[in-house]
Design a protein around this nucleic acid. Structure first.
Length: 218
DNA sequence: TTGGCGATTGGCT
DNA sequence: GCCAATCGCCAAT
């Protein structure tokens, strides 16, 4: 038996002027927004359900010691991609978050897959939907994100951009700060040893695509 | 020039 | 739950 293919969600690109120019505010703002990956013959999309802030002066952040060839994208104006390789095995996708010349970034840790699930399954070599985009490395692999995308403008037409619902959902519940009806939780960031106590992680509560231990998903 | 150490993941105990 | 894989960065040699 086959299920009818769901109609792609109507999305519009986020304008740079809409983004809060503050790393922590941007991390919270991005929960419920969407990532769009344009590949030849396919559009892959997902709703952001988990993100972490790496703000100005954060000793755990890659921008902490100033700009280098690797991290220069974190010093671009808000809404640019910073892609890097973690542990020699997984790529990570970040959104630059402070004014040009100032280092700041938001790590996208998980999305809820929407359009293009079949291509995501091929990239990830699994049929398990729950394993496609749960965790920053998995998210990047599902969307075929590589350092070739480092530095690109996520507020412009191209291979990767940020979006929001073209028509806001009918307000049947309280409207959260993300603009949707998602309940947003906060916690410490995952996998850090430095500055490990700050609550700079934001996630949609109860969403099954959020990574981390159960306690950090409720 | 070298060694330690990650913003992780997947496989195995 | 534990641990190896794997590689680029950076601090110290």
């Amino acid at each position: 038996m086959t299920r009818p293919t769901p109609r792609p969600e109507r999305l519009r690109r986020l304008r740079r002027a809409e983004l809060p120019v503050d790393t922590v505010e941007l991390a919270r703002y991005l929960i419920g927004k969407s990532v769009v990956r344009e590949l030849e013959g396919a559009r892959l999309t997902g709703r952001i359900v988990e993100a972490e802030a790496y703000p100005i002066g954060d000793p755990a952040a890659h921008h902490f010691r100033g700009p280098t060839p690797r991290n220069r994208s974190l010093f671009l104006e808000p809404g640019h991609a910073y892609v890097y390789l973690a542990y020699g095995t997984s790529y990570m996708l970040n959104v630059s978050s402070e004014e040009a010349g100032v280092g700041g970034g938001v790590l996208l840790r998980a999305i809820e897959p929407r359009d293009g699930i079949e291509p995501m399954m091929r990239h990830r070599r699994t049929r398990r939907v729950e394993d496609l985009t749960r965790g920053p490395g998995r998210l990047a692999e599902a969307l075929a994100i590589t350092p070739r995308l480092d530095g690109i403008d996520l507020c412009a037409a191209g291979p990767l951009w940020l979006a929001t619902a073209a028509e806001p959902p009918r307000p049947i519940g309280p409207i959260g700060p993300s603009g949707g009806i998602a309940r947003v939780g906060t916690s410490v960031r995952i996998g850090l040893t430095r500055a490990a106590r700050r609550r700079l992680r934001f996630y949609e509560r109860g969403n099954r695509f959020v990574s981390g231990p159960r306690l950090l998903r409720a």
